[in-house]
Amino acid sequence: MLLNVKNLTVKVARTGQILVNQVNFDLNAKEVVAIVGGSGSGKTTTAMSIVRLLDPSLEITGGSISFNGNNLAAFNNQQMRHIRGRDIAVVFQEPLYAFNPVFTIGYQINEVLVYHTDLSRRQRQTRIPELLDIVGISDPQRVKNHYPHQLSGGMRQRAMIAQAIAADPRLIIADEPTSSLDVTLQARIIELFQKLKEELSLSILLITHDLGVVGHLSDRVAVMTGGGIVEFGPAAQVLKTPKAEYTLELMEALKF
């Protein structure tokens, strides 16, 4: 088991309002686990708490996040910094806003290599186009010198994924990676994730409200609503024969 989340609880510090309520799920190596739910269900908060990227007004008040034998919930900031980018990487929803507009793509990927690998400058210069190639970007030498706003939406998302895999992480948390793309591009990105899972032995924690993506990509799925997980099991099973009422509602609503 790569990641084991037990009884995770996240509250708003000032008011005590509970956003994530005693959530339990786990994830194995080379596995894709999806967390589905509507907006406000707490799925993003759950995922972000794993890497401690929560809004400062929130705090983890209970539970454990076991990763590679360590409890991440007990780590201090310094320790979390070493985990982020190196062991666990994040792919965000909207790459136009997730990339810094004033630095080139190559520069931003380079940062990950500088801080998390021992590669020399030369090695990094060769590695960056390699990474861009792996994610399916043609002409990586040119693209690496481009600024985020110069790329198309699909290419940007791929570049974001390249940045995520740069330091060879064990786990990628993908927060709604396809939601800002049109349907054809979505399919491509899903294909890419499949390929990366196979070739790089990656695990992926997929946050999404799109049940189609769940069906195509994930091995297991957790259904969340109101801060809690109502169902957790193999994707095929949950989608065919959902046990929880909410899952049914969700599938109805999304016309699945």
Partner: peptide, 17 residues
Amino acid sequence: HQQYVTTARAKGLPESK
């Protein structure tokens, strides 16, 4: 509050950077 600041943190960069 911008997304790219969160990304920078997610990449494991030191807070000063």
